[in-house]
Write a protein that binds this DNA or RNA. Sequence first.
DNA 1: CCAATTCGTCACGCAACCGTCACGGAAGAC
DNA 2: GTCTTCCGTGACGGTTGCGTGACGAATTGG
Lengths: 226, 226
Amino acid sequence: MKKILLIEDDTDLYALLKYNLEKEGFQMVGAQTGKGAVDLCRRERPDLILLDIMLPDSDGLDICKGIRSHPDLAPIPVIFLTARASETDRIVGLELGANDYIVKPFFVRELIARIRIQFRQQAQPVRALKSGSLELDRSSCRVRLDGGELQLTATEFKLLEFLMARPGVVFSREQLLDSVWGHDRAVTDRTVDVYILRLRQKVESDPANPLLIRSVRGFGYSFNEA
Amino acid sequence: MKKILLIEDDTDLYALLKYNLEKEGFQMVGAQTGKGAVDLCRRERPDLILLDIMLPDSDGLDICKGIRSHPDLAPIPVIFLTARASETDRIVGLELGANDYIVKPFFVRELIARIRIQFRQQAQPVRALKSGSLELDRSSCRVRLDGGELQLTATEFKLLEFLMARPGVVFSREQLLDSVWGHDRAVTDRTVDVYILRLRQKVESDPANPLLIRSVRGFGYSFNEA
DNA sequence: CCAATTCGTCACGCAACCGTCACGGAAGAC
DNA sequence: GTCTTCCGTGACGGTTGCGTGACGAATTGG
């Protein structure tokens, strides 16, 4: 499922888009302000960004520039939403690195079609996570430890990917279930423990003394920073 | 230098675009009629196609469909030019496989910006893909294995081409359907499995132990790196 | 020192996933 | 028109992975 970050200050439009895009099967996260948009990106790691240009507190163009200058975020497609229809505005937006540009008012179905185009032709950005001798390649779904390849199952991989992407941050079982298993989970929180165990057995050199995956009693788990 | 194929019946607009785009450094070829447009494509092999939807003798949508169904032409970006602005027209155009859609009257500079976006996103236009003794030639739509030529169907070819162009990258059935079949699909994701099977039977020396096309349980498939 | 809570660990039943085959129908060739 | 090729679906079986329950160890709090 693709995750879309929506930054739009108009409450009505925000709700409308969120509703329609979720109905279309996208996972939506968003903000109604431009403040901290780049940080939000780094935390959420969306697959696509819908960005209003006219925000009350900041300029969408600047946000786009910030995203493009950040190496991890640069490959993420950006679609501008805007009421400005003047020629120079359009050109500036497109030349600044936006992948598409859609002028309000627009048809929701057209926006959806344009989103799908971005995903269709996206040359998947290859991002590898590394911590010591442990390497996780998202694009090939492979995990290597000291050169040798580990055989992880799908859930194990997704859990490790989630934790490695956010080193040092402690997540509760609840949060992990929401993020890794999905919102429509029907799973006990103890399931997380089992997967942490399985991961440790494959990843840790000494599973009894885990160095990579840390338990925080009463809170949850985290992946240790290098 | 990028070659652009322009199909537009309006003489004034045709000349205007040809002039401006040549000034911009593009090599222009074109026709003012839709007849034989697909054949023209196969002869000229442009890097991008500008296509008027409303042509006196034929429908631009059909031309686009014809291009998309040809394995060697399918990856060429298509931008629709049109005076029709109704919602369904836009959706149909975009969902049919157009990469962008611009409504007349438009600013020439915006068109240029949108053309550049297509080229920016476009991966390296490698004509031939090779992996070990397996060779795939995009322009002639031929696949050779150990010198002998394989008989692949159009869908098999497009699927193999897509995977070979991105070795090592794992794609879900969903992504493959979007990219290879197109989003206007009415197809079960299990269809992908069948085509993977058919490809393996033709491509793999031992289909029971596939070396080229890898299954990644829970995720999808990928073409193994050399 | 005991009770309560939390976490690590194991084994098991079931569901999901994938490979495979055969069939009906659509599209195109002749 | 007929024939052939190709496409997509449905179904079946084997395998794998998933999630739960149970139990014990470890930790916390009184």
